Simulated assay, not measured.
Amino acid sequence: MSIKAFAFDLDGTLADSIPDLAHAANAARRDAGLAQLEEALIESFVGDGTESLVARAMAADMSASFTGTAAQTEALGRFDQHYLEGLTLKTKLYHGVANTLNELHDCGYRLAIVTNKPERFTQPLLKELGIGNVFDVIVSGDTLPNRKPHAEPLQYVMEKLAVSADELLMVGDSKNDILAARAAGCKVAYVSYGYGAAESIPEADVTLARFEELMNWLEAQD
C-alpha cells in the first residue's frame, strides 16, 4: 500500500466544534421560546448535516428529521445566522492537527476535506482556523448530490486528485466516515477522540488516539 492522499472529516476529527454548534442550536431554540439543551445532547445530534442537526435540536429528539416545515425552515435560518456569527468563539483545532497537516502538505501528500457540513460553513471555518490553504479539494455536505456515508464524495476526491482507492486514506471520527470509505474501497483511520460513539463504530484499518499518531502510522507503512 502506498498512500498518496488523505481525506479528512472536519468536525470531531480536525476541530472540536461542538461548543459553537451547541451555542447556535440553543440560540435557535431560545429564539423559538424553547428551553436550552445540554451540550452533550446536542453533540449526539451532530454528523448528518446541518438540517438534521437543527431538526433534532429543535425537537430534542435524535429520531427527528428535517422535512422543511415552516418552523424548521425558520429555525434553520436562525441557526445559520447564529453559527456564522460565532464559528470560532470556542472551536479549536485538536492538538497536533495544524503541525501534522502542514507536515503532510510539505511532504507532497494531497489533502482533501470531506465533511457533511454545508459549504456556507466549511469554507469560512477552515479560513478562521488557518488551515484552508493546505487542502487541494474541499467537499462539503452540499457539494455533490450524495454525502457520507455514500461513496460519491470520496470518489470525487479520487477523481480530482488522480489517485486510486488504494492510494487514499479517509480519516474521521464517525460511522459515516468508515462506511463512506468502505463504499469507496479505500482505507480508513478512526480517531477515537472525536464525537463518534466507539461502540457504534465499524472496524477501521487503524485507530488513532491522537491526531499526530497519523505520521507514525504512515511511516510504519513504508
Rank of each mutant, 00 (worst) to 15 (best):
L144V: 13
A32P: 07
M62T: 05
A112K: 04
P149H: 10
T67V: 08
N133M: 15
R29P: 15
H105K: 13
A70K: 06
T50V: 15
G132Y: 15
G130K: 09
A98L: 13
D61L: 02
H95Q: 12
T67K: 02
T88D: 02
D136C: 06
V54D: 03
L37E: 08
E152C: 00
T88W: 06
V46W: 09
V157Q: 07
V97D: 11
A57Y: 03
N146H: 14
L111P: 06
Y94R: 05
L144C: 10
A59D: 05
F135A: 04
D142R: 03
A55P: 03
E159N: 12
D136Q: 12
T67S: 03
G68T: 07
E119G: 04
E152F: 02
N133A: 15
L144Y: 13
K148Y: 04
R147H: 09
N133L: 13
N133I: 12
A75L: 03
P149T: 12
T73C: 01
E159F: 07
A57I: 05
R110C: 01
A32F: 12
V54N: 05
A57V: 04
K117A: 01
I113D: 10
T122Q: 10
S140F: 05
T69Q: 00
P124M: 08
A151M: 07
E51Q: 09
T69V: 00
Q155V: 12
T69L: 00
F45V: 07
S52W: 00
E119S: 09
T73Q: 06
E39L: 13
K90A: 15
V157Y: 10
V46R: 03
C107P: 00
L84F: 07
L125F: 01
T69Y: 01
A40P: 07
A112C: 04
L84P: 04
T143M: 12
T50P: 00
V134R: 10
D106E: 11
G49Q: 00
A64Y: 09
T122P: 08
G130N: 10
K127Y: 14
D61N: 06
R56W: 03
Q36D: 13
L89S: 12
H105P: 06
Y83V: 04
M62H: 06
A70Y: 02
P153R: 11
K117D: 02
A64G: 05
T91D: 12
F121M: 01
T143P: 09
G33A: 08
V97R: 08
Q72T: 02
Q72E: 14
A112E: 06
G108T: 07
A40W: 14
H150Y: 14
E38H: 15
